[in-house]
């Protein structure tokens, strides 16, 4: 088995462009073509903007998730974490409004709080995993439940809403933009480009891949394994906070159902993009393609009638599996 697969890998590296690399892109292009064929509004400015902007939250989180998974970890708590951070941010901003009025400082403080809260939440996950030594799956399953309960408790089971005037002031952060490109899209692009550079061209990215590939080799190569792993969770937490900064101005509210299943969508996007679930290899641009694929499927199903809405989940599931199978075929001929 080991022999057979390693030998086949030789062929892969010589092939240059092959399915493993272009698989996700082919899937994305196919979806765009289907969209164009089905609905003339598909390529309209408004629809493209909608799809890209709504991808931004999960996209920003998935970029962070790429690092965690590449380093051999996993984080199931990001959806709940996003809901909790959003709730906290709204509560504090509402409080601040009473003392500072409806003003820019309130927004800036709210943003700072979201980033710090995300960072601390990531730090807690990371410390429990790397210092206390509990499995990432268990730790983040636990914190997932904790944050979900906390937001329900904060909101008294209902919905936390930003004060109306505050919402109007903060609104442009989601709906506004420059040169016709909305802020969430700009933020997503910046995070994705930085993520790709960090993954591919810095020691941190290389260390993540080394740890995910073989933690023992990394340790023997004098890489600070625990610190790098901790950093991946902190980075992810920070990006969750950043995603929340973009999310809150959209509807100005958070509830117990905010961010539901975001963790699974983020993980699915990462895997569709060609990052190995067991770690050792990650690519951020692939993750971006994965996020777009997932968003486009939802968009296409909403724009057309030919599939019963009951089957939306089945279509998404099938595309996820297909995307991964395509990559396998390209990688190793079994």
């Amino acid at each position: 088995m080991t022999m057979a697969t390693t030998q086949n890998n030789t062929g892969r590296t010589r092939g240059g462009l092959n399915l493993q690399v272009i698989g996700p892109i082919v899937a994305l292009i196919a979806l765009v073509l289907i969209g164009m064929a089905l609905n003339s509004n598909f390529l309209s400015y408004a629809n493209i903007t909608n799809v890209l902007a709504r991808s931004a939250f999960i996209g920003i989180i998935a970029v962070g998730m790429t690092f965690v998974i590449t380093a051999g970890g996993l984080d199931l708590s990001v959806g709940s974490m996003a809901a909790f951070v959003a709730g906290l941010m709204i509560l504090v901003m509402n409080q601040l409004t009473t003392s500072l009025g409806v003003s820019l400082p309130v927004i800036l403080l709210g943003i700072a709080l979201a980033l710090v809260a995300g960072l601390v939440a990531g730090l807690i996950n990371g410390i429990l995993i790397t210092r206390v030594g509990i499995e990432a799956f268990i730790v983040t399953l636990g914190t997932m439940g904790i944050y979900r309960s906390l937001i329900t408790w904060l909101a008294d089971g209902g919905t936390l809403s930003l004060g109306f005037e505050m919402r109007e002031l903060y609104r442009p952060v989601y709906y506004g933009g420059i040169a016709g490109i909305s802020w969430p899209i700009i933020a997503f692009v910046v995070v994705a480009v930085l993520g790709e550079v960090v993954m591919r061209h810095t020691a941190f990215g290389r260390h993540c891949a080394a740890i995910g590939s073989n933690e023992k080799v990394a340790r023997y190569s004098s890489i600070p394994v625990a610190r790098v792993k901790l950093a991946t969770y902190v980075l992810l937490g920070l990006l969750v906070g950043f995603a929340v900064v973009m999310y809150v101005p959209r509807l100005g509210s958070a509830s117990a159902s905010t961010g539901l299943l975001w963790e699974l969508e983020a993980i699915a996007a990462v895997i569709i993009g060609g990052t190995l679930l067991k770690g050792g290899f990650g690519r951020v641009w692939g993750t971006v393609v994965g996020v777009l694929i997932l968003s486009l499927i939802g968009n296409l199903l909403n724009l057309t009638d030919f599939v019963s809405p009951y089957l939306n989940g089945a279509i998404q599931g099938a595309v996820i599996i297909l995307a991964v199978v395509l990559q396998r075929k390209g990688g190793t001929e079994r």
Binding site: S44, N50, T159, L251, S257, T258, G298, N299, N302, L303
Partner: peptide
Amino acid sequence: NWNRDTAFTLMQDWLSR
């Protein structure tokens, strides 16, 4: 799905369509 975010996306797409 009785969910604000899902409803937002759904409505966006219907408005395009």
